[in-house]
Every structure is written in structure tokens, then in C-alpha cells.
Write a protein that binds this DNA or RNA. Structure first.
Lengths: 318, 318
DNA sequence: CTGAAAGCGCTTACAG
DNA sequence: CTGAAAGCGCTTACAG
């Protein structure tokens, strides 16, 4: 390539990267012409070896087939692309071992940074990444310690919006469908709900796994026992969708028999039967914030708020 | 590292890679001990530069937030991991330009291969990849030419299963909800349906975009006109879910008013209201096949069949 | 079985 | 403004 242009590799580098040294216009033309003729494609691997930066970021996420994580992954990839970075992805499922495996492989590959979108098992991989000197940002859910940088939506605000809206429909008891335990973001949501209903014994706490199947089964069971609440806030879309399908199969009307609001608000919540009223997490903004944090090391921005998308499942006539 | 072990870099390489030259047991021990002590992490970038293989595969997909593509992406990543490869991912949306951009970036990064899971715009990037000597496998949808390696499920079989099942419920006219045009896999499904209903004029062809919103709107409109078919095969889960939500909002019972079968069968189709009967595409097998094809260059395996998951939307009492 | 050396394709001081 | 050279951290012939 340098030979074809009749110049040195240094000059080729200067024109390709538009710096850091100036190049005479005529020389630049010759290099560009040669590059076009040869279909020259700069080797990023060689560049990475020399410059110690790959332009690649590792994204570890729980499960891309869950639409919430899938949407987040898409936004992270696109934010990274806007910053001219490539995305290496890995699904950790709900296994800490697999998460460590992925982080290890990503460090081997010399990623410039790591974004971790973990489900409930966000165990801290700080030891590994600190040793490698690679920055990490968590999205949705950070490790317990508290020293990590994490971006998440404003869970407190979202829960209060949901509870207030259901009260506006005349409900006095507002139940909450939480996850199996009180860890992670759902734990925060659960705490916000506890505060909002302030110990009202008629506002019951329900629990099930984060899956449609689990929420579906729970709903069927409670319907069979006549123990279903009249107004419910579901911690996640997956669970809300399971409630919808369980209610349907028991011939129970939503929102007539049970009014429902979900706290994720992924795009698909708009097309369930009936359409879910939900607080919509600003996934794109969260992804952008995470990428910004990774490279600019800006101070932590305030948690973005999730606006309430009013649809049918709460009782509105929309 | 080599200095720490008191040996040459060549020997370090031999023990790390377990070859290609033998190493004395005592020397090996010394190297391993030094590696453990230093937390030695072989630099894959340097290795890639020297050996001209990165161990990275590029995955271009339409949209990870669509559960069908998201699930496929997860299976591809896991199949790649089993083959000890890393996955670089990019969402092309429905833009050919963005797809080319991603392929370009992936080639810059020197991926060992490319897996393309395109939506309807699977334009052929063969020119780029052939110039770079990088193998490509398409999943779900191949380019028009026909020379490319593509893995997809047996669309013909799935459609016939669906039509036969609806006939078993006593329906004589079986409508089909297709995409906006007859390209890609949906075109194949549409053709299979045409053959199955053999020109019965009562079996109408419907079309809309591949989104819940579009199918929802179409269903509402047809319900308003009293023009909804009594039995329908939807080309995709997204469309079937839109039909469900449109029917619900018009107070129309599924399966009583309209019996429905979908042709994707992603996991979430099991928890709609009502649960969707669907032909379940063997996504994991497809991903495994694609990865196998990429590296082993085995002859094209027969298209995997999609078994019918019988649930409620078809009229069964499940 | 082991070491010294070349070279993968870049970037970047250093001379000119 | 440009070229010759070193070096990023590996792998792999080539000698010994």
C-alpha cells in the first residue's frame, strides 16, 4: 500500500487517520488514490496492538430473548455505534459463573470497556476488571457493594405514579407483584410500593419468578381461590403479561375484574390484550448515559424518569 | 512473563497453547507458576495479528428487541461460545445502508466469519465479504441471488400443518396474514398457503407490516367492516399478537370469533391472551446449524421442521 | 527440548 | 513535510 503510493507507511497512517502530522496535498491525493484502487482496509487489529485500544466494548446481558433486555441491548449497541465503537455481546443467563466466563473472554479480547446488564445475579466482577484496568458501567442493576457506576431509571417515581393512578380509579388497596426476593431494582420498586401503601393491610404483596409462565400460573391459582386483588402493580412487563394471560384463561376481565399497571413499559406492552398501562423506562436515554459514563467518566447523572403510558389495563377508556 | 519463568517467549507460547512443540514437564510447571503469579492473560490481539484469525464472528441482525430475532441472537451467541468464538453484534434495523455499514466495520475488525439474520432487506453483501475472504451464512432469510448459504426452517411444512389443523376444526376458508410483499421467508410461507388452499376464493389474503401495531390496526378496521375471516394463519408472531390485541379491543372472541395460528412460535407466544397455537421454529437448531456451516463448510443440512404447539387460539380446549 | 529471531500491520517518536 | 526505524505481544520456522 505504501509502496503503491510511493511513500512511507508513516505518511499512509497520517492520511488515513488525518493526523497527527500534516501531509502535503499532493501526497495525500496519491495515498487516497492508491487506497481506493487497492480497496485498502486498515487493519484494526494491528492498530489495536500498537495503540492499546480496540474500539470494542463488551456487553454482558442476562437474556436477549427477553424483550426488555433485548431492547436495552439494541440501544446500547446503537449508542456505542454513535461513539464509533463496536459491540461484543454475551448472554449470561442467570448464572454468575457464565457472567464471569464472559467477562474473562472479553478481557482476553482487550475490550476498552464493559457494560453489564445483569438480571438479579449482578455479582461484582470488579476484581477481574480492576486488575485489567478496564472501566465498567452497570445498567438496570448494580452489584451490592455500591462503589460501582450504575445507571437505572427512577424506580421510586415510577411506582408512585402507578399507585396514584390506580387510586385515581377509586381503588383503595393496591397489590404489588414482586420478584422472588427483594434484591436489585425490583427490590427498590417493592420498597417504593411499601412506602406508597404505608402498611395498608389490604394492599397485599405477591411474589413470583420473572417470567410469563410463573405469573400466569400464580394468577390462575389465585383466581381459583378467589384471592386475586382488584388492583395490581406488576414489577415487570413479563409478569404483567403473564397476569393477563392467566386472567384470560380464567375468564376474568382486565381491567374490570383486576386493574393492572406494569413498570417496564417495553414497546410490546402496547399491544397486549388488553393494552397494558405502564411506566415506560427511558431505555434509549439509559443506554446513552451508560456509554457516556464509560468514556467521559462524567459524574453520575440523575436517574431518568419513566413516564406513565396510559392505556387500557388500568381501567382508562383509551 | 517469559523472563519471570526464566525461559523464552516461544516456550511460553507452547505451554499456553499446549503445542505445537513439546515442552519438558519441569519447564511447563515453571511457566504455569509464573503465569498464575502474574495473573498472565494472553493478548488475543497480538495473537490475532500474528495468526490472522481473531476468534470473533460478526452477527448482523435486524432488531434485537423483536423477540424472534432476540431469541435467534441469543442462540447464535451461545452456539458460537460453544465453538469458542466471540460474538460481535450489530442491529441493522430495516436499512440496507446500515447493514453495509456494520459489515464494513466487522470486516475492519477482522472477524473470522459473518452471520446475517436480516429482516426483509437481506441485500447481498457478497461483494464486500468475498473481497475480504470472509465466509458468510444467512439465517432466516437469504439474499435473492441463491448462491449464498442460508439456514431456515421448513416453511412449507409449517404452513401445511397450520392449515390442516384449522381445517380439523371445521374451517373451510383459511385466510393468511402476510407481509407487505412476497419477498423472503414470508413469501415462501405465503406461497405454501396459496398451494394449500388451492385457489379457494373464500380463503383471503391479508397484508400488513411486520409489527403488532400494524396487525392491530388492520384487525380493528376489518372488524369494523365485518370483514374479518373466521380462521387465520398469521405469518409471524408479531402479527398474530397484533391480531389478538385488535380483536380484544373490538370485543371479538379468539378463537370463537376468529381462530388463529401463528408461524413463528417464539416462547412468548405461549403466554398471550389467549395462548397462541403456533408452529415453533427450532431456533436453537438453526443457530447451531449456521455456526456449523460457517466453520465446517458442511453441505447444507435439510431445513429443520417446526412442530405445531397446540394451545388455545386455534380452538382447541388446551 | 529450547532459544534467538523474524514478522504480522500498524503508530509514533526521531532525524532529516 | 517525509522517511527509516522501533516496537506493540504474540507464533512459528530455524538452529542448536
Amino acid at each position: 500500500m505504501a509502496r503503491k503510493a510511493g511513500t512511507s507507511t508513516a505518511v499512509v497512517s497520517y492520511v488515513i487517520n488525518d493526523g497527527p502530522r500534516p501531509v502535503a496535498a499532493a501526497t495525500r491525493e496519491r495515498v487516497l488514490a492508491a487506497a481506493a484502487e487497492l480497496g485498502y482496509r486498515p487493519n484494526r487489529i494491528a492498530r489495536a496492538l500498537r495503540s492499546r485500544t480496540t474500539g470494542v466494548v463488551g456487553l454482558v446481558l442476562a437474556d436477549a430473548s427477553n424483550p426488555y433486555f433485548g431492547a436495552l441491548a439494541r440501544h446500547v449497541e446503537q449508542a456505542l455505534d454513535r461513539h464509533d465503537r463496536l459491540t461484543m455481546i454475551g448472554n449470561a443467563g442467570y448464572s454468575a459463573a457464565r457472567q464471569r466466563h464472559l467477562v474473562d473472554r472479553f478481557l482476553d479480547a482487550r475490550v476498552d470497556g464493559l457494560i453489564i446488564v445483569s438480571a438479579d445475579g449482578a455479582d461484582d466482577v470488579a476484581a477481574l476488571t480492576a486488575a485489567a484496568g478496564v472501566p465498567v458501567v452497570y445498567v438496570h442493576h448494580g452489584p451490592a457493594g455500591g462503589r460501582a457506576r450504575v445507571v437505572a431509571a427512577d424506580n421510586h417515581h415510577a411506582v408512585h405514579e402507578a399507585v396514584a393512578h390506580l387510586r385515581g380509579h377509586g381503588h383503595r388497596h393496591i397489590a404489588f407483584l414482586s420478584g422472588p426476593d427483594d434484591g436489585g431494582p425490583v427490590g427498590l420498586r417493592r420498597a417504593a410500593w411499601s412506602a406508597a401503601v404505608a402498611g395498608d393491610p389490604g394492599s397485599v404483596l405477591l411474589r413470583c419468578d420473572y417470567s410469563r409462565a410463573a405469573a400466569d400460573a400464580l394468577t390462575r391459582r389465585l383466581a381459583g381461590e378467589g384471592a386475586l386483588p382488584r388492583a395490581l402493580v406488576a414489577a415487570t412487563d413479563e409478569q404483567a403479561i403473564g397476569v393477563l394471560s392467566g386472567a384470560w384463561s380464567r375468564g376474568l376481565d382486565v381491567p374490570g375484574g383486576i386493574a393492572l399497571i406494569s413498570l417496564d413499559g417495553t414497546p410490546e406492552s402496547a399491544h397486549t390484550a388488553p393494552a397494558l398501562t405502564a411506566t415506560r423506562q427511558p431505555l434509549r436515554a439509559m443506554a446513552e448515559q451508560a456509554v457516556g459514563l464509560l468514556f467521559d467518566d462524567a459524574s453520575r447523572a440523575p436517574a431518568a424518569r419513566a413516564p406513565l403510558a396510559v392505556r387500557r389495563s388500568c381501567g382508562c377508556q383509551k
